[in-house]
């Protein structure tokens, strides 16, 4: 039971971490909380669903398709909604309001075009279960854990080892000075939104498989935002640690206490962490965290 709960917790934590990294990455560059991220995740879930069912494509193609869709939507979101604010040096608050507008718009776009009903993913991975000793572990959980680990490790290597990754890290510290050395801010910001969008697409597929795809599923990602804040907004290791911690906490509470009060524990954890460490577990920013 313990092993099973831990693996399930890690799997959920991995998906939270994927989503939280998207929030943190954008925050580290533009200093605002991109509340449209949840809607990109939602659209990623739909994209994966349609690639699987309408195109009848295999699972890896669905993953690739939803990541691509997420990246394109993420970049379009930035170019249409945030770039006009960016070129005018608007304050983070305006970005956040714009992000909320985008979230509401995208949700309603889905209501208007696809309707309010829940799309349940076909059982590509089946309900199959792997037995390890006493524990029976869902294949879906194992896949979620594997994909999120690979994606996050890949992102880490990209940021640490490549020229573009270095440019992103430089911009996260000082955009103006980065541009003085020839770094094109539009390109870096675009790249960040493409990465965040691709990760959103990936997490969308797993959320869709776990909970189905529906217009307001983006609100699940509030949890991922909580994870990002617990870890320290703007810090990628923080997002990962926060995501995993939150996933484990929720699963353990669900199993050993009660799944009804699961969220009480999550948000209490947020409040406690912020009381003790206002910038999160690994954050550097003490400023506004909206």
């Amino acid at each position: 039971m313990l092993l099973q709960t831990t693996i399930t917790g890690l799997a959920i934590g991995g998906i939270y971490a994927l989503m939280a990294v998207g929030y943190s990455l954008v925050f580290s560059i533009l200093n605002f909380s991109n509340f449209a991220h949840g809607s990109v995740i939602m659209l990623g879930a739909y994209a994966g669903y349609f690639v699987l069912t309408r195109a009848g494509a295999p699972f890896p193609v669905a993953i690739a398709g939803s990541m691509l869709a997420g990246a394109v939507i993420g970049v379009a979101n930035e170019r249409l909604a945030y770039k006009p604010l960016r070129v005018r040096n608007a304050r983070p608050l305006y970005f956040m309001i714009s992000a909320m507008g985008v979230a509401i718009f995208l949700e309603n776009l889905v209501y208007a075009t696809l309707g309010a009903h829940f799309y349940s993913y076909p059982e590509v991975l089946g309900r199959s279960i792997v037995r390890i000793g006493e524990a029976s572990i869902g294949v879906l959980d194992l896949f979620a854990l594997a994909f999120s680990s690979v994606a996050i490790t890949g992102l880490h290597l990209f940021l640490q080892r490549t020229k573009s990754g270095l440019a992103i890290r430089a911009c996260s510290f000082d955009m103006t000075v980065a541009s003085v050395f020839g770094i094109r801010l539009d390109r870096v910001v675009g790249l960040v939104f493409a990465i965040a969008g691709a990760l959103a697409g990936l997490s969308g597929v797993f959320l869709g498989m776990k909970y189905m795809a529906y217009p307001t599923m983006g609100w699940i990602t509030n949890k991922a935002y909580v994870a990002a804040v617990i870890g320290g907004l703007g810090s990628l290791p923080g997002a990962v640690v926060g995501g995993i911690a939150l996933g484990l906490l929720e699963t353990f509470v669900s199993v050993y206490v009660s799944s009804i009060i699961r969220d009480v524990f999550s948000f209490s954890a947020l409040v406690l962490v912020l009381l003790a460490m206002p910038n999160g577990l690994m954050g550097k920013y003490v400023e506004e965290k909206i």
């Binding site: 270095l166 430089a170 980065a178 050395f181 020839g182 770094i183």
Partner: peptide, 26 residues
């Protein structure tokens, strides 16, 4: 054209080597 800004404005989150690499970004 390049610049040494007032109060350095180094990338504190990057190593010395990485700061030099950013200088050679182009």
């Amino acid at each position: 054209i390049s610049m040494v800004p007032e109060r350095r404005r180094l990338f504190d989150n990057l190593t010395v080597r990485e700061n030099l690499l950013i200088g050679a970004y182009l």
